[in-house]
Design a protein around this nucleic acid. Structure first.
Lengths: 105, 105
DNA sequence: ATCGTCCATCGTCAATTGACGATCAATAGG
DNA sequence: CCTATTGATCGTCAATTGACGATGGACGAT
């Protein structure tokens, strides 16, 4: 245990927030998912012309959307036979907040 | 190609920025790395008492640090036999900017 | 020159991820 | 009831990740 410039004694970790941020980040950690968010940021809702936009197989896009939904970044409203996907801006705001907590404390 | 609430015609993608954000996010996408950043946010520099803090094997911590360094989130200055790790706040600022571009455009 | 310390790297293993085609479920419309 | 459409899910495969112990390299100090 060598020395640091300042003590390490007083650090308290917020494991919940660490996991929360990591989980958001993981969901964001793929270019296709970033692109999906970008598309959904502009327009309110989408069917799956998202598939056309991404040039990936339908099942692949569906999987990316599932990840984004599970992370809370995207919302899906089913109005059969279509599903409307939308961005959840609160989630992005939350990420910014968590990032802020990270290095301005 | 079904209908969207607004057109999809005019979207132009910035693939470089998408990859940049995804790459940052990927590096952030693990609780141990978030914790490392949290530690490095508070103090200027560290040896590897980081290992003690994380409770992971030295090689594992070293690997997490490598990922953070390669992503540009962390800086390492070698002053043998120690290495000083520090946060690169510009990187976090850049992430916030990329996030902002995502949903306020 | 040797030793100890610190950190990176290697090899390995299990687990997860990303992509795909194929299939399934639910509904609207004929 | 049948069909077409949309999107979720399944199974599979290769590739990547996360973790570890072991090893190696670079100093500083003895």
């Amino acid at each position: 245990m060598t020395e640091c410039l300042t003590t390490l004694d007083g650090i308290q970790f917020n494991e919940a927030e660490e996991k929360e941020l990591a989980s958001f980040a993981k969901a964001l950690g793929h270019p296709a998912r970033v692109r999906l968010l970008k598309i959904l940021a502009g327009r309110v809702c989408l069917g799956s012309d998202l598939v056309d936009q991404l040039g990936l197989a339908q099942s692949t896009v569906s999987e990316h959307l599932r990840i984004l939904r599970e992370a809370g970044l995207v919302d899906a409203k089913v109005t059969h036979p279509r599903t409307c996907f939308s961005l959840r801006p609160e989630a992005l705001e939350r990420i910014r907040q968590l990032l802020g907590d990270l290095y301005s404390l």
